[in-house]
């Protein structure tokens, strides 16, 4: 397995969907290739940092305003129907 082969399996590897034989090849590659090991670690950190920090937070005030607007529009549509 080379680095390109490994990268093509990265998504399934994270999802735990790699068949056992291929997983063994991946582990061998990772033990030998420091670059790919770094890619695995830092890609995992990329996902974690986005999951752990809400990039677009919605304030309670905005949420209430949105909620009222949604329900007003839906009730108006109901009356029209």
């Amino acid at each position: 397995m080379n680095c390109t082969d490994f990268l093509s399996q990265l998504t399934d590897y994270f999802d735990g969907q790699v068949p056992p034989a291929l997983l063994a090849e991946i582990k061998t590659h990772l033990a030998e290739c420091q670059h790919c090991e770094v890619v695995v670690n830092t890609t995992r950190q990329t996902i974690e940092v986005y999951r752990g920090n809400e990039v677009y937070d919605i304030s309670d005030e905005l949420r209430e305003r949105l909620h009222s607007a949604i329900m007003t529009k839906c009730m108006a549509a109901r009356k029209r129907a």
């Binding site: 990039v55 949105l66 949604i70 839906c74």
Partner: peptide, 30 residues
């Protein structure tokens, strides 16, 4: 509503658009 707002904001990268889209999404769904 929070999830739909976040999705819209991530795709459009624009808060006003995300607000409109959130309202329109639920109206369409209704």
């Amino acid at each position: 509503e929070r999830q739909i707002f976040r999705v819209a904001q991530h795709i459009t990268q624009n808060r006003e658009d995300a607000e409109d889209i959130t309202q329109d999404t639920f109206l369409k769904a209704y």
